[in-house]
């Protein structure tokens, strides 16, 4: 089944370039939008599987759009594409539920590879984003002791991503399967996104923890 994609970017040439790349690679671009308002309206109308989203768009901005999209259809994959890589925004978008992030200067091949991975639900982290996420967990564990922490293995994998290593190189170095590395990164992303109580509770139940004392 072809993956249905929506492209959101306020720059028409960019939008067209990304759209034609995706179409040529076999994706079905079901909608394009130039601002947050259009994006949310067209998202509701077309329900795409994957959204390629620029963060700097006329209001509501990329972070707000990500939050709203994940709220409405949590299974939607969001790949954030940003020119400036504004750090707070990128971290906010990923915390809000985006599955991947790529700078716009990435080549066409890198973009298509990222879209393919995000469509599979595989997180796409840049080294810079991994560094931010490591810092965020450090900050959270200092400020809120109850927040989920990363396991030693997850931290190890995330540090390697932050040092620019590919999943394959990480798998080789840690003598793990590619799939296991991927799972570790996925868990990091899940823990990062569990920022509200409902999700925390769900997490605790999944883990078979007794939540009666806490809630």
């Amino acid at each position: 089944m072809t993956v249905r994609v929506m492209v959101v970017d306020d720059h028409p040439m960019w939008r067209d370039a990304v759209e034609s790349d995706l179409t040529r690679a076999g994706y079905e671009v079901v909608a394009v939008a130039a601002n947050g308002r259009e994006a949310l309206a067209r998202f509701a109308a077309t329900e795409p599987d994957l959204v390629v989203l620029d963060l700097q768009i006329p209001a509501p901005d990329g972070v707000a759009v990500t939050t709203d999209i994940i709220d409405r259809r949590p299974q939607t994959r969001v790949l954030v594409l940003s020119a400036s890589g504004e750090q707070d925004d990128v971290l906010a978008a990923v915390t809000a539920g985006a599955t991947g992030y790529l700078v716009k200067s990435a080549s066409r091949e890198e973009l298509l590879a990222a879209v393919a991975r995000v469509a599979d639900g595989e997180p796409v982290f840049t080294a810079g984003l991994a560094g931010l996420v490591l810092g965020e967990f450090q900050r959270r564990s200092a400020a809120e002791p109850d927040e989920p922490r990363l396991t030693d293995r997850e931290t190890e994998v995330l540090r390697m991503v932050a040092k620019g290593m590919s999943y394959r190189a990480i798998a080789e170095r840690l003598v793990l399967s590619h799939r296991t590395v991927q799972n570790h990164v996925q868990n990091v992303l899940r823990k990062l996104q569990m920022h509200n109580r409902v999700e925390l509770t769900r997490y605790a139940i999944e883990r078979g923890l007794d939540v009666d004392d806490e809630v």
Partner: peptide, 20 residues
Amino acid sequence: ARVVHDGTLQVLALVQRRGH
């Protein structure tokens, strides 16, 4: 400044892509 810079970066990235 962020809005202006983002626009500049977009155009530079686009030139890079089309040039390639």
